[in-house]
């Protein structure tokens, strides 16, 4: 890891924190926040490894007691709560977004961006968050699944925004550079 990579990792942890300042829409127990946009953008702009580390760093900062989550909450309680699974999924989601982005980098366009952000930023997040909630609350998986459909419209909008932004940032300031070969040469 070069210092530049560390700075990019810190930057996207910070961006995810700033996205928490965007007012959240409260839907039942879980707020719809802009913060999963941070998951998508970190993966789309930085790639798998650095995107993963950026979200991991963000969660470490939350865990040590900084109130960086959308509702101004933080500390270890949020990881012990029923929605903790969604938080745990963020670094993995960013990794998957980054992986698909890197693999499609030479022919990256809006279609690939949407695929990466939907799979990594929505499917992976739900695939970890929903079973966690079901196990935690002792409720049937189907009930937990139905409950999380409230988030689908918001997440779809975020995936579109992240993809439009990612395609333009790639043109203006590409951070991923021929990822596979660059990784091998280091």
């Amino acid at each position: 890891m070069k210092t530049r990579d560390l700075a990019y990792v810190a930057l996207f942890a910070a961006i995810t924190a700033v996205l928490g300042l965007v007012p959240a829409i409260q839907v039942g127990p879980v707020p719809i926040t802009a913060q999963t946009l941070g998951v998508m953008l970190a993966g789309s702009v930085l790639g798998a490894r650095r995107g993963f580390l950026a979200l991991l760093l963000f969660l470490v900062l939350v865990a040590v007691g900084l109130p960086l989550l959308a509702s101004g909450s933080g500390g270890l309680s949020v990881f012990a709560g029923p929605s903790g699974g969604y938080l745990y999924s963020w670094p993995i989601g960013a990794f998957v977004v980054g992986l698909i982005t890197e693999l499609s980098w030479s022919r990256y366009n809006l279609g690939w961006a949407l695929l990466a952000n939907v799979v990594g930023g929505i499917v992976v997040v739900y695939a970890i968050g929903i079973p966690f909630l079901a196990l935690y609350g002792d409720i049937p998986l189907a009930a937990a699944f139905t409950g999380s459909f409230a988030f689908l419209p918001g997440d779809a909008v975020k995936a579109v925004v992240a993809s439009l932004v990612a395609v333009q940032v790639r043109r203006a300031y590409p951070v991923i550079e021929r990822p596979r070969r660059a990784a091998a040469s280091q």
Partner: peptide
């Protein structure tokens, strides 16, 4: 509104992070 803010913002802060690293 999101993209017109986010794209210049990301380019600016990526440059800032690069400068910090240097």
């Amino acid at each position: 509104a999101w993209t017109t803010t986010a794209v210049p913002l990301l380019v600016q802060v990526l440059q800032m992070a690069h400068t910090t690293a240097e």
